[in-house]
Simulated scan of single mutants.
Amino acid sequence: MKFLKEMFKNWWIRLGCFLCGYNYSLLKSCSEASKKAVKKYTAALLIVMMLWALIGFLFTKEYLKFGDFGSSIAAIIMVIIIVQVERQIILGTKNTYSKWFRVIIGFIMAVLGSVIVDQIIFREDIEKQKLFTVANEVNRLLPQRTKEINDQIHALDSILNGKELERILLIEEITQNPTIKIPSSTTSLVPERIETKQIIDGQEVTVYKDTTYVKKSFTTKSMTNPKVEFIPTINEQIEKIRYNRSELSKQLIDVRKGLRAELLEKKGFLDELKVMFQILVSSKISMGVWILWFIFFLAIELFVLVSKYGDKENDYDKMIEHQKDVRIKSIEALIS
Rank of each mutant, 00 (worst) to 15 (best):
L263F: 00
S31W: 08
D210Y: 06
N10V: 09
V103K: 10
K181G: 08
V134G: 03
K128V: 03
E62D: 12
K9S: 15
D125K: 01
K2F: 11
L165I: 11
Y316F: 15
R102K: 05
M1A: 09
E272T: 06
M78G: 03
K318L: 08
E229R: 06
V207W: 08
Q144G: 00
A44I: 03
K308S: 00
V326W: 08
E321P: 03
T133Q: 14
I77V: 10
F277V: 03
F294N: 04
S29Y: 14
G310Q: 02
E137D: 15
E313P: 04
F18Q: 11
V103R: 14
L189A: 11
L305A: 13
L334A: 04
S330D: 10
K329M: 10
V79T: 09
W290N: 06
Y309D: 05
V115A: 02
I73E: 04
P178N: 12
R260P: 02
D271S: 13
V85M: 08
Y309I: 03
E332I: 13
Y41F: 11
T96M: 01
N95I: 07
F218T: 13
G67W: 11
K240V: 09
V138H: 12
V304M: 01
L58R: 00
D157Q: 14
S282T: 07
I126D: 01
S336D: 08
Q119M: 15
V275Q: 04
K39R: 09
E262N: 14
S217W: 05
K39V: 07
K36R: 09
G70R: 09
I104Y: 09
I295R: 01
A75D: 00
I120M: 01
T233L: 12
A261E: 15
Q278T: 07
D317G: 09
E229Q: 14
D157A: 14
I77G: 12
T42A: 12
M1H: 01
L4P: 01
G258D: 13
L298Q: 03
I82G: 00
K39I: 13
E229S: 14
R102C: 00
I335G: 06
F269T: 03
G56C: 11
K312D: 01
Q129C: 03
G202H: 12
E192Y: 13
A53L: 09
F303W: 08
L27E: 01
I174W: 11
P143L: 14
R145V: 06
N136M: 10
Y208F: 15
S336A: 10
G268T: 12
L54P: 00
L45F: 05
V214E: 15
D254W: 08
I241E: 11
D271I: 10
L15F: 14
K128E: 15
K329N: 11
L302M: 12
V304K: 06
Y213Q: 13
M319K: 13
E236M: 13
G21S: 00
I81R: 07
